[in-house]
């Protein structure tokens, strides 16, 4: 695996950068292109890169499937929960305007929340899917 040494070093530098970029995309979505979905994909690609270089087994240790599963589900729950929050505050489902004191603020909060939900689900879904695919070899090898 030594021949990957350079790659690994570069990757170790790159991966935090990619994650940071993902977060930027996440929060910049309001003003420029981007949003939860794109951020999720980018975030996931950081993991995928990690898994490619260090092996799926190691990657699974960093991000245990169980945790990923939970965030996968939680993302949808955050999204749907935002809708319920709106309901509880007397608005229609997913009506963010009621979430804060004034409508625009509420919208902003709501959009951020659901974008975060999307981010969680998308990133964990992508990681899950990749791990499962890439894990095929590993799992078979263990037989």
């Amino acid at each position: 695996m030594n021949r990957f040494a350079i790659l690994r070093v570069v990757a170790k530098l790159l991966i935090p950068a990619i994650m940071l970029f993902a977060l930027y995309v996440q929060f910049h979505g309001d003003f420029g292109p981007g949003g939860g979905f794109q951020a999720g994909v980018i975030f996931a690609s950081a993991f995928i890169l990690y898994a490619l270089l260090f092996g799926v087994v190691t990657a699974r240790k960093v991000a245990p499937p169980r945790l990923i599963n939970t965030t996968l589900a939680l993302g949808v729950l955050v999204y749907a929960g935002t809708g319920f929050a709106a309901l509880l505050r007397g608005g229609q489902y997913l009506d963010y305007s009621v979430l804060a004191h004034d409508a625009v603020h509420g919208q902003h909060l709501g959009i951020s929340l659901i974008e975060f939900g999307v981010f969680m689900t998308v990133s964990s879904a992508m990681i899950t899917i990749f791990f499962v695919f890439a894990g095929q070899d590993v799992d078979e090898g263990q037989d």
Partner: peptide
């Protein structure tokens, strides 16, 4: 909505339900 990116505001708010479906 206070969001200048119209795509984002439509995606997340006006048609937020579609996005829930998408998720």
């Amino acid at each position: 909505t206070g969001v200048p990116n119209v795509v984002t505001s439509v995606l997340a708010s006006y048609r937020g339900y579609d996005t829930l479906g998408e998720t």
